[in-house]
Design a protein around this nucleic acid. Structure first.
Lengths: 185, 185
DNA sequence: TCTACTGTAGACCAATCGATCTACCCGCGC
DNA sequence: GCGCGGGTAGATCGATTGGTCTACAGTAGA
C-alpha cells in the first residue's frame, strides 16, 4: 500500500473494467476495491468517472506499449508476436476467461473521450509494431497496414476467445498472423 | 407498427446495444424506443433484461448469418469477404461511428449467458465461412482455422475503427485477409 | 503556532436502475 | 354474454448510480 490514492484508483479501475466493462463498473465497487475515499476521485480526476477511466485506459495502453518494446526490441517480429499472443492466451485461461483487455473494453464505452483514449492506445501499439517491421526490411506503407491489422486481429481474437471461453481463437490468430509475417518478410 | 411487442423489443434492443453497449442500455430507454409496455418485457422474456439481450444477440447473429449465406452462396469467397467488409465500413461511416456490432457489444457483457450467445453467433459465422472455403478446395482444418480468424479479425478491425473514428482499420483488414485468401486458395 | 493541503470517512443528494405490481382496454373463443 | 390472455399505462419498490457535501486526521511549510 505504498502507492497513493491516484495510483490505486488507476490500478483498480483497470482491473474492474477488465472484468465488468466501463458501464458495468460502479464507483462504489471501485472505492472498496482500491481502498480509497470517494473524495479522492474528484481530487485527482475532476472530470469524474469519465476522466478516471480515460486516464486508466491511457495507463494500461502505455504499459502494454512498454511490454511490446521489451518483447520486440531485438530481432524476429514473428516470434515476438507469437510470444505475446501465447502469453495472452495463458493469462486468459488462468483467469478463467473472466478478464479481457481493458483497452478493448474502453473501445466500447459510451463516452467519446474514453473511446478516443482506446484508439490512441491501439495506434501506439501499431506504431511500435510497424517500426519493428520496417526494421526488418518491409516497405513503410506495407508495414503500417500490416501492423494495424495485427493489432486489430489479436484484439478481435481475444474478444472472441473470452466470449467462447476458449483459447483457440488466439492460437488461430497466432497461426494466420504467422503466415502473413512469413509471406512478405 | 405491424410487428408485435416481442419483435419491437428485439429490434430496439439491438439498436440500443449497438450504440451504448449492454450495461449502457437502460430498460426505460428501451421502452420508449420500442413503444412497448414495461410488462411486455417480462411477458416475453421472463428472465428480464439478460434474457432479452441474449435473445436479441441471437437474432442479430442469425440475421448476419443469413447475410453471409446470401453474399457468399455462390463463388469467390475472397470477393464476398471484401464485399462484406466494405459494406461494414460504409455503414460505420454513414452512422458517424456511433454504432458498432451488437454481437461484439454482447461479447463484453457482464452476463455469462449473453457472452455465450455472442460466442455462438461468432461460431455460426465461422462455420458458414469455413464451408465456403472447403467448397473452394481448402483442407477442412485449414479452412476452419482461417474462417475463425477472419471472423475475429474483422470484428477486431470494426472495434478499432469505431474507436478511432476511421474506416482505415477495416480496409487494412480487407487487404490482409485478401492476402491470406489468395495465398492458399 | 498557524495555515494550507492531502487524504479518509461517511452522510447525503437527485436520478436512475431492473423489477413487480395493479388497473384498464381489447379481441378471440366458448 | 362471459371469461381469458395479450397488450398498454403507469405507480411503485428497494437498491444503486455518479456526484457533492461536511467533518476530521495528519503532515509539511511559513
Amino acid at each position: 500500500m505504498t502507492d497513493g490514492p491516484r495510483e490505486r484508483l488507476l490500478r483498480s479501475s483497470i482491473a474492474l473494467v477488465r472484468a465488468h466493462g466501463v458501464e458495468g463498473t460502479g464507483l462504489t465497487e471501485l472505492l472498496e476495491h482500491s481502498g480509497t475515499a470517494r473524495r479522492s476521485i474528484y481530487q485527482h480526476f475532476p472530470g469524474g468517472k469519465d476522466e478516471l477511466i480515460a486516464a486508466s485506459t491511457r495507463a494500461a495502453g502505455s504499459w502494454m506499449k512498454r511490454v511490446l518494446q521489451d518483447v520486440g526490441g531485438q530481432g524476429d517480429v514473428a516470434a515476438a508476436v507469437t510470444l505475446v499472443i501465447t502469453e495472452v492466451a495463458r493469462n486468459l485461461e488462468a483467469e478463467d476467461f473472466a478478464l479481457g483487455c481493458p483497452i478493448a473494453a474502453a473501445a466500447f464505452a459510451d463516452s467519446l473521450p474514453v473511446r478516443a483514449a482506446a484508439a490512441e492506445a491501439f495506434h501506439s501499439w501499431a506504431d511500435e509494431l510497424s517500426a519493428a517491421l520496417v526494421a526488418e526490411g518491409r516497405e513503410v506503407a506495407d508495414a503500417e497496414s500490416l501492423a494495424r491489422f495485427i493489432v486489430a486481429a489479436v484484439e478481435g481474437a481475444l474478444m472472441v476467445a473470452r466470449s467462447a471461453r476458449s483459447t483457440q481463437p488466439l492460437y488461430d490468430a497466432a497461426r494466420q498472423v504467422g503466415v502473413l509475417l512469413g509471406a512478405g518478410g
